[in-house]
């Protein structure tokens, strides 16, 4: 319980600092604050999808359903955080570029990522046999993850994009105020802890579902 309360206080404190202590970027003005939701959500998306790929590979090696539970749960949560990053980015685009959606390379690549991982969940939903579902979706997840660094970090940098890159840029050093970076970094940690908490709940729920299915089968 102490860890949960600490997480709650951590996120409240860093959000408050982000709003009240960190300066606003002159061009972005008040919309700078979207960054404290948008950037951590995007980073946690990468962590979640990498976690899903890791457990998919472990499932293929060990054939243990615990890994399948982790892979499925982290893909679901990765998709959720990706939606948060997309929606917050879209609101930002409206304020800065004049439209919610512009088919900018960054927006297009995130759209493809959403499609790829929605297809993963559709695949899982379409197979009844648990072992077959786990095996096929593990293979899919391993292949799908190849697109994540490509779509998030590489493609938007190949083509001209309106999206700024103040942190991961070609200039070799972060192009951002230290206070904004501190708040964003702390919130990445907070969002990551939140992800692992939600993940543990989803995995436990998956285990309960399997136990119930097993109980129903033995009753029949």
């Amino acid at each position: 319980m102490i860890a949960r309360v600490a997480l709650f206080v951590w996120i409240v404190a860093w959000l408050a600092l982000g709003f009240l202590w960190a300066p606003l970027v002159p061009v972005l003005d008040a919309t700078t604050r979207v960054f404290y939701f948008h950037f951590p959500a995007a980073m946690v998306t990468c962590i979640a999808l990498a976690w899903s790929m890791l457990h998919s590979a472990l499932y293929l090696k060990r054939r243990d359903f615990v890994h399948d539970d982790h892979a499925a749960a982290s893909a679901e949560l990765g998709l959720l955080f990706c939606l948060v990053a997309t929606i917050s980015g879209s609101l930002w685009a409206k304020a800065m570029w004049g439209a919610y959606w512009n088919w900018d390379p960054r927006e297009t690549s995130i759209f493809f990522l959403l499609l790829i991982y929605s297809a993963y969940l559709a695949l899982r939903g379409s197979i009844d046999d648990p072992a077959r579902r786990a095996r096929l979706s593990a293979i899919y997840s391993c292949i799908a993850f190849v697109t994540v660094p490509l779509l998030i970090f590489i493609v938007p940098r190949i083509y001209f994009s309106l999206h700024p890159d103040p942190l991961f840029n070609t200039r070799g050093k972060p192009d951002m105020d230290g206070r904004i970076m501190a708040c964003a970094g702390a919130l990445v940690l907070g969002f990551t802890a939140l992800f692992f908490w939600l993940l543990s709940l989803r995995v436990r729920l998956g285990r309960l579902e399997r136990r119930r299915e097993l109980a129903l089968e033995t009753r029949v």
């Binding site: 709650f8 409240v12 959000l15 009240l20 709940l201 729920l205 309960l208």
Partner: peptide
């Protein structure tokens, strides 16, 4: 104003997840 809404949403989400965790723990005990 925006900070207030953000903190309210986070607070509600936190309470919801805590309740969810308690419910899962109850189901695991059965």
């Amino acid at each position: 104003m925006v900070l207030g809404v953000a903190l309210l949403v986070w607070g509600l989400l936190f309470v919801y997840v805590l309740r969810l965790e308690r419910r899962i723990r109850d189901l695991e005990k059965r």
